[in-house]
Amino acid sequence: MTSLPLEIRSLNVAYHRKMVLWDADLKIRSGRTTAIVGPNGAGKSTLLKAALGLIPSASGEILFYGEPLKKVRSRVAYVPQRESVDWDFPVSARDVVAMGLYKKIGWCLPVRSRHRRMADEALADVGLAEFAGRQISQLSGGQQQRVFLARALAQKAELHLMDEPFASVDAATEQAILALLKRLKDQGGTVVCVHHDLDTVAEYFDDVILLNMRVVAQGPASEVLTPENLRKTYGARLTLLDEAVVDLSRPGAPREP
């Protein structure tokens, strides 16, 4: 069997003295889109960051395509949360997207017009062709998010790890991201997103990982999103009303017109 894009075994992460992740085990299947869902503070973003080695993990094994990240970096792309960078930085949207190509360009060599063209293509793919030259603070929140996506796209990776790409974006951006996810999947890529919205998760993603410090359940969305699993994840906070919402959002369930 070919190795999975991402496999994590008993990952433990602690911030100072507080445990954030407990023996997290998960497998990401190739060619599918997966959402990591859970309540606030459940360690969703931490999971991604620890997997990518951005924060140290106390113990556990993390394999990308059966190897440690170091060996397969070029196959993995990361889309950080929008808040993580300083948007006043003096670069244009095109410059940011070109950052996805830096590794390919190599040490010390400058960004050439051919690379700028590639960046422009990636920008066009997320519907921002006309904004290429703008300084990034002059873009709206959703557009900034799409610039990040375009950067990951330009990197031409196989596995994309995205931290809350749908957080407070407008409808146009949401559509653009969805179209992008679909395209990545059609090209044989694998996508993992931290996602916060239970209502849309079944509609947007193939697989779901329910996380609350530990992995509660993982697998195809329709199998995982059961009221019982959700109660295990969200505890008493999930009211009957939310369960109704969950039922409705499952594929095949009757939906309001």
Binding site: M19, D23, A58, S59
Partner: peptide, 17 residues
């Protein structure tokens, strides 16, 4: 002290499945 403390704590936590 912090290191010592977290090591003790780790020992008490890990056996949980």
């Amino acid at each position: 002290a912090q290191r010592l403390f977290s090591r003790v704590k780790e020992h008490s936590v890990t056996p949980q499945a």
